[in-house]
Amino acid sequence: MDLFIELIITFCAIIGFGVIFSVPKRALLLGGGIGVITWFVLQTGINMGTSTVFATVIASLTAATIAHLLAKKIRIPVTTLSIPGILPLVPGSRAYFTMLSFVDGDYLQGLEYGVETMLQAGAIAAGLVLALSIFSFGKGIGNRYETGH
């Protein structure tokens, strides 16, 4: 039941964010839907006992994959869907406590929160990168060897 309320609130919050970023109308609801799925995956992962960072990678990968698929289908830039999709994962709370600890002069605690913030941001990036790599198969992106000829 708690999760259900959270999902509804996520949906509203993500649509709010969509308006802030001026996402076109036909993508607003889709973005909200992707955000809900992201939050659901994240919470399910955490409830199943995985670490927050791992759950974030999975959730971000899910969001980016759905965003890529839908963006191809309705022909809009993928950012309009992937940004709302990953917003529920943003480590705003950790970032805030990092700042709070530094303001209080508790530098060790601040560093701990800071590292957690960086890890979570890195996990979001990792999910995006994985999805992007999957959808660039064959087209090529960032080659290391000239194996093509």
Binding site: E6, I9, T10, C12, A13, I20, W39, P88, G92
Partner: peptide, 10 residues
Amino acid sequence: VAGSGFSYLF
């Protein structure tokens, strides 16, 4: 809406 939603989620 976004702000209040995220304050609940956090």
